[in-house]
């Protein structure tokens, strides 16, 4: 066990964990930030996507010891009132079915739009294809990314 000081959602938090513990489980088990989901644990599904210094990152394969002072944003910290353009678009388009994959989808989409505010359909598909939705909400995800893109000036 080691003590880690992490920068999460704009706050400094301290927590104890084994160095190889993936950030995902530190968020979920230690910090109660359960919005970030476990789906595969091997970087194949995207359910665990968070932002590390603004980049969409798979937290299930990111050891807490490698995070150091990076700025981490989880779904809980994407916006203060749940009104990030991507979250708004997701609601407007009514994307979720079961909803389990959606935090990861949103974090992936938000990072994409930050990097490329006006992505083409192909660019949306290329980026979002890393995230599995077992319920098959892909059409609405694609539409919601476009709606969010229109909101992003």
């Amino acid at each position: 066990m080691a003590l880690y000081k992490l920068q999460i959602n704009g706050k400094t938090v301290q927590t104890e964990a084994d160095p190889d513990t993936p950030l995902l489980w530190v968020l979920r088990d230690n910090l109660g930030l359960v919005g970030t989901k476990y789906g595969c644990g091997i970087a194949m599904c995207g359910a665990c996507t968070v932002h590390v210094n603004g980049e969409a990152t798979r937290s299930c394969v990111l050891p807490v010891s490698s995070v150091s002072s990076a700025k981490i944003t989880t779904i809980e910290g994407l916006s203060k009132n749940g009104d990030h353009p991507v979250q708004q678009a997701w609601d407007e388009v009514d994307v979720p079915q079961c909803g389990y994959c959606q935090a990861g989808q949103i974090m992936t989409a938000a990072a994409l739009l930050k990097r490329n505010p006006k992505p083409s359909t192909e660019e949306i598909d290329a980026t979002m294809s890393g995230n599995i939705c077992r319920c098959g909400t892909y059409h609405r995800i694609r539409e919601a990314v476009k709606v969010a893109s229109a909101k992003t000036k």
Partner: peptide, 12 residues
């Protein structure tokens, strides 16, 4: 819309 949207989209 899905009644749980807000909770889902904010990671509750």
């Amino acid at each position: 819309k899905n009644v749980d949207n807000k909770n889902i989209l904010t990671g509750k």
